[in-house]
Structures are given as C-alpha cells and as structure tokens.
Design a protein around this nucleic acid. Sequence first.
DNA 1: CGAATCAGAGAATGACATTCTCACCAAGGA
DNA 2: TCCTTGGTGAGAATGTCATTCTCTGATTCG
Lengths: 216, 216
Amino acid sequence: MSTPTEEPAWKQRAVERSTQAAKRRAEQRVERFLDAAQAIMAEKGTTDFTVQEVVDRSKQSLRSFYQHFDGKHELLLALFEDAMSKSAEQLRVLATEQSDPLDRLRVVVQELFESSRPDPATQQQPLFTDFALRLLMSHPAEMRVANAPLLALFTQLIQDLEDANLLRPGFKAKRVAALTMQTVMFNAQSSGQDAAHPLTAEEIWDYCAHGITGND
Amino acid sequence: MSTPTEEPAWKQRAVERSTQAAKRRAEQRVERFLDAAQAIMAEKGTTDFTVQEVVDRSKQSLRSFYQHFDGKHELLLALFEDAMSKSAEQLRVLATEQSDPLDRLRVVVQELFESSRPDPATQQQPLFTDFALRLLMSHPAEMRVANAPLLALFTQLIQDLEDANLLRPGFKAKRVAALTMQTVMFNAQSSGQDAAHPLTAEEIWDYCAHGITGND
DNA sequence: CGAATCAGAGAATGACATTCTCACCAAGGA
DNA sequence: TCCTTGGTGAGAATGTCATTCTCTGATTCG
C-alpha cells in the first residue's frame, strides 16, 4: 500500500514537464478544431456542419477529434459556453458605462436583444439561437452552466435595482434575473425569425421593465 | 384542346363518389398514423420516435406513410398544430369563466404556463416544448401558422384590456400579445427543465403584468 | 376477365456520427 | 542505438435514421 515516497524530484519535474508539453499539444489541437468549427459556422451561418467538415478543415483526423471531444455535442457546447461568456463580458463592460442602475439594465437588455436576434451580418449568431434551444431541451444542466455568466450579470444588475428600491416589491432579484434574461433572448429569437413582427429593443425593454399594465 | 364537355353526370358522380371514398380512406390512414405517433410520444415522452415505429404501430407501411406525409416533419407539424389549436380552445373556455378582463388574461397566462411546462403526468406535453423549439428554428412560417390560434386568443384578451384602459399606454395589443405568449411558453419550458428555479405561475404572471419595476 | 390503382414488405440509398484497424512516428528510457 | 508507448493520420466499418425504390398481391371498375 505504501507508495514509494522516494520519487526523486527531478523525475517528478520531468514527468511534469512532459505532461505539460502533452497538455499544451492537446490544447493546440483542440483549438484547431474549435477554430475550424467557428470558421465553418461563420461561413454557413448554421450549426449544421458535419464532424468530417471540421476535421478536414482543421487538417486533423477523426481519430484525433474523438480523442479530444466526447462527440459533436461537446464541441458545440465548448463553442457555446465560450460565446456566452464573451458576450457576458461585453455586456458587463457596456453596463459600467451607465451610472443609473435602471439605465445599466436597460442597455444590457437592449444590447442582448440585438445581439441575440438572427442577423446575417455578424458571425457567431447561430450559437445564440439555433444551438441554444437544442441544448435547453437535451442538456438543461449544461445549459445552466453556459448561461451562468450572463445570469450573474443580470442578477447583479437587478440586485442594484433592488438596493435602489427600484425593484417591484416582492420580487426576488435572482428569479427576476433569470426570467428577464430568458425573455429577452427567446423573444429576440422568435421575433427575429419573423419579418412581420420585428420587435424592437425598446419594445422589449418597456415590456420587461413595466409589464403589460404598467401599474399595480 | 377542347375537353369533352359532355361528361355524363352519372360519371361525374361516380368519380366524385370514388374520389370521396378514396379521400375518406386516406383520412383514415392519416388518422391511424397520427394516433400511432401520439401514442408513442405519450409512452416515450419525447418526439424522438422513428418513422418506422409509427408505421409498425399503425400497422401500415412505409410506402403508405410517405404517400400521405411529405416526411416526418409533416407528421410532427400536424400533431403540433392540432395540439396548439386544442390548447387554444381550452384556454378560451377558461377565459370566458372570468368577467374581469385582467383576470381573464391572468388565468390564461397561468394555465398556459402550467400546461407548457414539462410534466411527466400529462401526455402530449413534449409537443409544446421539444418540437416547438425545433420548428421555430427550421420553419418559422409554419410555426407562425401553428401559433395563430393561441396568438389570436391573447390578442383578443389584451385588446379587451386596452378597451378597459388597462393596457400600458403606447403598447399595441397585438405586439404585446405575441410577446406575452412567447414569454410564458418559453419560460415555462426553461424553468421546468430546471429543478432549482421552479418558477410559479403566479410569478410569471406578476412579471408579465407589472414588469420589473412595477411602475413608470 | 383485364387494366389501373392502392398498399404491404422490406431491400436499397444516403447522410451522419461514432468506432475501429492499421501503420507511423517521435520522445524517453534501458 | 533499440524498444516501448502514446498520440495521429487515413480511411474503412458500423449503426441509426429518413427517405426512396422494387416487387407483389389485392381491390376496383369498366
């Protein structure tokens, strides 16, 4: 049972070094798959690429792909988490430019709405839409993880509102945050698909902020 | 070019009769496919059945399936439209039981929320969730058609609100209707998937009715 | 009866994801 | 230097579906 406690330090370091080298190599390969996938999505505008396409594009092999990813799903998830996290970052920055707590939330809601609607201009939109919905149904837990950064931002912004006594009495910041985030993203999605009801960012903000009746 | 204008009436009737008979038969077959699919979904709780399963269950043939449906997609769509339409009916009935316009909307919102969340008890829930999202992405036009009955109900209810001066000034009933419907259904979906934030029907109603701030 | 249409059985096809086989090669240890 | 080993490339094999195709028997109608 007793493990050899006399592992020479140099050996440990050597193992460590080669382990780190291997890790670095692996990360590079993963990166190449990720980049290839992103490029393909940008070109085709959907998440409907084949694993083979990614493999070819990245000039690696199927063998290697499945060595690094559990499957196509993992690849999508990685890209999605990344995109969500980056998006949360951007929005957070945007928020800091506003001093009024209500304005902070407003700009974030409106910008999230704009960036969540399908737009042929920007690249990585499909992730925010196409894949997000599939993920919601198939892997809610992973969806929660991917949403976490954005949810944290919303929670904080609404907490600020609460501190400023601007949150409707009886509401819990965290729950309103989740509700608002989902509402904005989903409605951006479904309205964007539809040329007839192109909701505006202002409309959705008015709705979220004041509700249907606009009073108690 | 001149078609025989002297088609004997009896012949026309005969053709008509056989056409109608054929139509009746076709409808029966379609029904059997539909029923089989519904039964399978109820059993398995998802829309992830194979066409083969439906065919076997309905004791018909693949040949026949593709004769009557353009593909699996058409089958799903048929079931979805049907479910949405039935649901809109039920909700409409529920609404008539309330005399106050705001209560009418409230009960509809709350019931739609409850019936849209994934619940192992009732049968045809998966359609309201699983498939709806796929449809939204892949065939927005058909989605719009399927949503029409429910949207009409919401529009009417909110129009009533407007007439009673209970709609926030500046809001258009039709747009608020779409926004509210989607918000309720989507949030039911995403909250239901998540054991941690089980939103309540009351919460979502408060949110939709009064918004985040609850005032102007 | 004979031609046309319908429907069942199930094989064939085509797209994919995923797995498996084989051959190579580079780095580390003996 | 030789051997072992882990990671790779190439690409064939498998498995699951949807969708199409072929063959064949039945039903209908003149």
